[in-house]
Amino acid sequence: MGINFRTETFRDDFSFRNSPEHIRRFPFPFHEDSYMYAVNIEPHVAGPAGSVLEHPIDVDEHYVSEMADRALVLAEDPLRCQSLPHMTLAGWDLLELLMTAKAESYPEHFSLTRDGDRWHWINRPLGIDQKFLFGDLTTLPYGPMEYITRQSQGDFCILDQRDGNLWMDAGIVTTQADWSLDFDIGMNFFEWHAPVPLAHEKGIFTRALKFLTNVQQGKPARRLNWTMTINPRLDTSPENYHKWGPDRATVTPENVGQKVHLRVELQSFWRLPRSNALVFPIRCYLIKMDELVTSPKWARRLHRVIRDLPEELATYKGLTRYRATLVEWLARYDDGTPTSPGFGPE
């Protein structure tokens, strides 16, 4: 049984919705009733059937529409996809990783046939049938990273590893939570995380870097991160902040359920075989408050997390303008009963 791909938008009329099955599989990021930064990195091993962790690279009902949105962003702003000259080999590594993972997990939608360097890729949902020579730039319409990430949900950063550090030397970033690839490209791990409050003092990045530089091929790792977004907008870039920022002033008690979205990033980390680079897919999942509160446990817990969030974090995540309205709305779904441990809906 294949995926039923939705036709929907992440801008203008914002027709994005989650089906009931996709609400149940949403990667809810809070395992307890409060939140603070932690080095919450774990092995990226297969999760339960039907969950976003069932396959190493998740493809869901929003795939086709997300790829259409990415194409719009890149047409408006080509600087969202950049690769420093030494990163081409890592781009081929990434192309191999994503093509083989998709073809293996979703054979009804994707297929890859390899005869030495002669590869044949079929992407049925996007109507792509491409024969090319692996390693030969002239046989693809884009560079290898851009080619395959125009067909893969989520942002991708490719990190070069040298001098005991990780360097943001390539990436495609069109669904980001307010950071600029154009500004951060070429920075090391500490530099591009420099604006994050509180976490440096807790030693989070020092420990995370130590873990990440030791990620081995075939043993990927993952973590969840989260923020909130007004309207189901994928492109919440700083580049366009002056266009989407006003949305934050439009939240009212009447429209919280439809306008306010929890935005969860499933970040994973993979060692690439030829380049020894680390690829860092940042997959974004959105859920409306009306959808989220169909799970009473998630509703109670989110209320407590947002209500008790430290002020610096609320500011950094951009919640300030509508936090009170949101907390008041969520309070209606919190009867004070305990929540069970763990991420699941019940």
């Binding site: 500004f183 490209i185 920075m187 420099a194 604006p195 920022g245």
Partner: peptide, 22 residues
């Protein structure tokens, strides 16, 4: 004007200060 700095651009980052309400 943020303190966030890019060596590659030799520049600090400037982000619209009143984007949410101009």
């Amino acid at each position: 004007v943020r303190d966030h700095y890019s060596r590659r651009l030799a520049a600090f980052q400037g982000v619209c200060i009143n984007a949410e309400d101009q």
